[in-house]
Computed example of a mutant assay.
Amino acid sequence: MLLEIQRKFTIFFSILSILLISPQITGRPLAVPYADAELIRRIQEIFVMDTGTAVYNITSLDEIVLCPGPNDGETYCREVISHSAKMKTIRSEQFDEFKDDFKDDLLPVEEVIASRMDIEEPVVETTCTSKSTLIYPESAQSKDGKWLLVVQQEDFKQGVLIEECASETTKCKQQFSYRNMVVLVGGDLKKEMVKLPSACECSLCAIEAQHG
């Protein structure tokens, strides 16, 4: 089974290497549908890929991340193609060092908002509608714009609580923060800071309040 997976990845990367003539795009997806139709057909024979699949880290064949579905403007992927196969390459003893990091955020939404407001700067009241969700991202964007594989296995999961704007407008702006997560890099586990949605801020509320 493992040999079959390795064979598929070898074929896939050989095909995808043809696409690397494109200039490097930091933190932005290469839209697979715009590539040569024949190449897409051959790739789809190996992996089940939606026409909206986004390809990240295109300048490094060993670190390519494939996110199915639309992902514009997001900094994480809930699912990554062949993520489970890559997780199976992790040696069991590698988890020991990070066992305390595999847990879920369990703070109630009210408590999370209260802790975020516990700062010295003036708090701006928000009228923007947002939604808090516990997610298990399989990939997320690092500080330098690189997409990393987040470690998620059956017995080793990292659930993170995020807050996203119901709809982003000129008034309501999505805010992000960085947090440590255990990721797989070059076959080894390590902690990296990744960018995740943390709040929906009303950028005009303070001005509106001043003018009644």
Rank of each mutant, 00 (worst) to 15 (best):
M1S: 05
L3H: 15
E4L: 10
I5T: 02
I5P: 01
Q6A: 15
Q6K: 15
I11N: 14
I11E: 07
F12M: 01
F12I: 05
F12T: 02
F13Y: 12
F13D: 09
S14P: 11
S14Q: 07
I15C: 01
L16M: 08
L16P: 07
S17F: 03
I18V: 14
L19E: 13
L19Y: 10
I21Y: 03
S22F: 04
P23V: 05
T26D: 09
G27V: 08
P29E: 04
L30S: 00
A31I: 04
V32F: 14
V32I: 12
P33W: 07
P33E: 09
Y34P: 04
D36N: 06
D36W: 02
A37K: 07
L39Y: 02
L39Q: 04
I40E: 06
R42L: 11
I43H: 11
V48K: 04
V48P: 02
M49I: 10
T53W: 05
N57R: 11
I58A: 13
T59L: 15
L61P: 12
D62V: 11
E63K: 09
V65Q: 07
L66I: 13
C67W: 02
P68M: 09
P70S: 00
T75F: 08
T75K: 07
C77E: 02
C77T: 00
R78D: 01
I81H: 08
S82T: 06
S82A: 08
S84E: 09
K88H: 15
T89I: 14
I90K: 04
I90S: 11
I90P: 04
S92K: 03
S92H: 03
Q94L: 08
Q94G: 13
F95E: 12
F95A: 10
F95D: 05
F95W: 10
D96S: 09
E97R: 02
K99A: 05
F102C: 09
D104A: 02
D105I: 07
D105T: 04
L106Y: 03
E110V: 15
A114E: 02
A114M: 00
E121R: 06
V124M: 06
V124E: 00
T126Y: 05
T129A: 07
T129F: 07
S132T: 05
S132C: 07
L134E: 03
S139C: 07
Q141H: 13
D144G: 10
W147H: 14
L149K: 03
V150N: 11
V151D: 00
Q152Y: 15
E154A: 03
D155A: 14
F156D: 10
K157A: 15
Q158C: 13
G159H: 14
V160L: 06
V160S: 06
L161G: 04
C165T: 02
A166N: 13
A166Q: 14
A166Y: 09
S167M: 15
S167P: 15
E168G: 04
C172M: 10
K173D: 14
Q174C: 06
F176S: 08
Y178P: 13
V183Y: 11
V183H: 10
V185L: 11
G186D: 05
G187Y: 02
L189N: 00
L189Y: 02
K190T: 01
K191A: 06
E192C: 13
E192Q: 11
V194K: 06
K195E: 10
L196W: 09
L196Q: 07
S198Q: 07
C200F: 01
C200A: 00
C202R: 05
S203V: 12
L204R: 09
C205V: 03
A206C: 08
E208T: 03
A209N: 02
A209W: 01
A209M: 01
H211T: 10
G212T: 05
